[in-house]
Design a protein around this nucleic acid. Structure first.
Lengths: 223, 223
DNA sequence: ACCTGAACACCGTTCAAGT
DNA sequence: ACCTGAACACCGTTCAAGT
């Protein structure tokens, strides 16, 4: 606490420090707790001081997305387009899992930043250099959707329900009214756990869908 | 205007009227303009009056999602699982296109409402009744992702840029720094228009990906 | 019992006043 | 030239006071 205060008093603010501070605040306190005012408080400055380094809240969010993108490892050289893309997308996924709020922010941005364009450009380049036509690459990008950024739409967002009794009650309720949902929730576990909403190995499912898509396009590449 | 006033003064508020009013407000003024205070103003009541019919803002948003789901046509009986799912998903897409804000709200909900569960249950039911195993159905649901609700993650959100001069400048800029992105933007048009960010027929792309996924699972069904 | 105004605890951002 | 406090125009929601 005191370290933070002296530290922030010593080194002057910069865009990078502001952005990293915002990412850290979102990581620890949650994205809903991220406000210009609270962020300023973290740096022991008045809210207006942030506007020297960041145009506003929107610019701050854009910058935070860029921080996340920077965590994605560059594509491995010398690999086939398929493994190059797969490796990079799984690296993006690891970055995203470190910052659970990031997918929501990426989705909400109204316009791509240069860093986002550079990332997409590199991803498209992998496919084009691998010999896929521009048209097929376009289809592939659309089919991958948010998977390009390392996530896919969650059918229900993860709700932490650690109370086993409430969980059991919810399972009974589910089975009574939505039997198909209940069946899927219980049969789908890959790790033995079969509890509602958690009996599903998201990583496995992500890779399953990713490979299915990449395989399908590989097949279409050479008819 | 006066009609609205007398109308709202006559008929008492109800949950349904509040939800439909919220959907209408989001449709016309945009989702960012939707606030409890503005919605109350539309009904010529004090903000607190809404809390009689809606638990709060979160409950309001949940209710709005339910309104959208209710617009999706029920599955056609007697069809194969593939066409039944395809038809229903494309109906969901039409509902979503009527309310451009809806995909963002659907994504943001922390927990599924009973109506959401019922929708997913019906969708799963189509696959299970069609003979797909529970495991394969689970994979399919994950692969479809947000497509189940009629949308897919936009790589860049649609930004209206009607100024053709600025558009041309942006295209040159894009080509210089992000050649792969520029190529895709220009070659991908299916309707002749080849302008940055708009040269892409989203409906075509949606159906392409949807069919690719459904075809792949049909192939896996009978090995 | 029902409704409601004022108030609370927040926002992002502007802007003029201070140094 | 730089920084900053107060202020503006909003939020969602609480709560006690009025009818």
């Amino acid at each position: 606490m005191i370290d933070q205060m002296t530290n922030s008093a010593r080194t002057p603010l910069s865009r990078e420090r502001v952005l990293l501070g915002a990412v850290a605040l979102a990581d620890t306190a949650g994205i809903d707790s991220l406000s210009m005012r609270k962020l300023a408080q973290d740096f022991d400055v008045v809210p207006m001081a942030l506007y020297k380094h960041v145009a506003g809240k929107e610019d701050l969010l854009d910058g935070m997305v860029d921080v996340i993108l920077a965590e994605i490892e560059p594509p491995a050289p010398g690999a086939t387009w398929k493994t190059a893309a797969r490796t990079r997308i799984l690296s993006a996924r690891r970055a995203l899992l470190r910052h659970p709020w990031a997918s929501r922010i990426i989705e909400s941005r109204p316009a791509p930043t240069p860093a986002v364009l550079a990332y997409l450009n590199a991803m498209i380049g992998i496919f084009r250099d691998g010999g896929l036509s521009a048209g097929l690459t376009h289809h592939l990008m659309h089919t991958l959707g948010s998977r390009i950024y390392g996530f896919s739409q969650e059918l229900f967002n993860a709700t932490a329900t650690p109370d086993p009794q409430a969980l059991a009650a919810a399972a009974t309720e589910l089975a009574a009214h939505f039997p198909h949902v209940a069946e899927l929730a219980t049969t789908a576990s890959h790790d033995g756990h079969s509890v509602v909403g958690q009996g599903c190995d998201d990583q496995y499912e992500f890779e399953f869908a990713l490979d299915l898509i990449l395989d399908a396009f590989e097949r279409r590449q050479q008819p």
